[in-house]
């Protein structure tokens, strides 16, 4: 892919990642100044859910880049992996901030109780914590300092983030709701591709010792 193609791809990705925030700002603005009902009767719950949904979607998108390369052999998805991951982190921080600043309004006692007593909040909190070291080591400089091998090993932590986020969603969803299973299925597929690839590589490596040799014609 040329420079121009990369630029178009990046601009497109930024636009997609910023669109949900822009929409939210638009709805909040309309609700505040034009008194529209875009945010529904319970705006705080709406905003929290919107940010949470997009955190998970972008996390899944970032987790989808490597499988796209594995399955289709494309190189371009890897150009977007960091960007998508950092946006997922941004949405996660906003989701969490709304919970602290707006929903509970610094009611630390109740929030602490929630983190300890409500498993879905506990795992949500852990999911956010696992993203922090990944965000901090996302720069090219940090990759160099850590070394590609150690950096790769550290960033496998994102698989745990995915599982924690899935549990967060599964446990908070009320009886009768079903969309959480779609997210979980997508996550399972994305991690499944990696498992298959890892197994294939193991088999291939095992087959290489001794390396396959064409039979010499008589």
């Amino acid at each position: 892919m040329g420079r121009r193609g990369r630029l178009v791809l990046k601009i497109f990705a930024w636009a997609v990642c910023l669109a949900p925030l822009a929409a939210l700002a638009w709805w909040i603005g309309r609700a505040l100044w034009l008194h529209t009902d875009d945010l529904g009767a319970n705006p705080i719950s709406f905003i929290t859910n919107h940010l949470g949904d997009w955190t998970f979607r972008l996390l899944l998108a970032s987790l989808a880049m490597t499988p796209l390369r594995i399955v289709f052999g494309w190189g371009w998805p890897l150009l977007l992996r960091r960007l998508l991951g950092l946006f997922a982190f941004t949405y996660a921080v906003l989701h969490f901030s709304v919970w602290i600043l707006v929903d509970h309004f610094f009611n630390w006692g109740q929030m602490a109780e929630d983190v300890v007593k409500r498993p879905y909040i506990t795992v949500g909190m852990l999911a956010l914590l696992t993203l922090i070291p990944l965000a901090l080591t996302s720069t090219t400089g940090m990759i160099k300092r850590l070394g590609a091998r150690r950096w790769t090993r550290l960033h496998r932590l994102v698989y745990l983030t995915g599982v924690l986020a899935a549990l967060h969603f599964l446990w908070l969803a009320k009886v009768g709701r079903t969309d959480q299973y779609i997210y979980v299925a997508v996550l399972a597929a994305l991690l499944g591709v990696r498992v298959v690839e890892w197994a294939r590589r193991l088999v291939r490596r095992a087959g290489k010792i001794p390396p396959p040799r064409p039979a010499t014609p008589p």
Partner: peptide, 19 residues
């Protein structure tokens, strides 16, 4: 008495900002 998934100590009156 908490619900297993959320505390019942506070509530949000629809239309209000603070719990």
């Amino acid at each position: 008495v908490s619900h297993p998934r959320w505390s019942q100590a506070t509530e949000r009156r629809i239309g209000e900002f603070r719990r």
